[in-house]
């Protein structure tokens, strides 16, 4: 499974993109479950968001959903935080 997060907006307006391929990873199942839940919680079009809030695009195996701070589901927040730290 290929998981990508693209973060835009924020006070700085600086974009950040991180991705990872879970194949071969010992914790792949955990990532899959998290990514699937985060995708279920996402929206098909970008939400309005709030001034200076981060906007996110989550893309899993070619499908993209949207979400924005501060209204993230627990799975979205966890996935985004981990991927921005550990992804490449």
């Amino acid at each position: 499974m290929r998981i990508q997060v693209r973060r835009t907006g924020g006070f700085a307006g600086i974009e950040r993109v991180r991705a990872m391929d879970t194949s071969g990873r010992p914790d792949a199942q955990e990532w899959h479950a998290l990514a699937e839940q985060a995708m279920r919680d996402g929206r098909d079009s970008p939400p309005a968001g709030v001034p200076d809030g981060f906007r996110y695009q989550l893309t899993v195996d070619g499908r993209t959903v949207y979400c924005a701070d501060p209204r993230l589901s627990e799975a979205q927040r966890k996935l985004i935080t981990r991927l921005l730290k550990e992804g490449a």
Binding site: G10, F11, A12, V50, P51, D52, G53, F54, D69, P70, T81
Partner: peptide
Amino acid sequence: EDYGNAFWNGEQMVFGDGDGEIF
């Protein structure tokens, strides 16, 4: 945690601590 942003949520201000490496 290490949140590198601040925003206005429509009702109040919210400030992160930054990650210490960039912000």
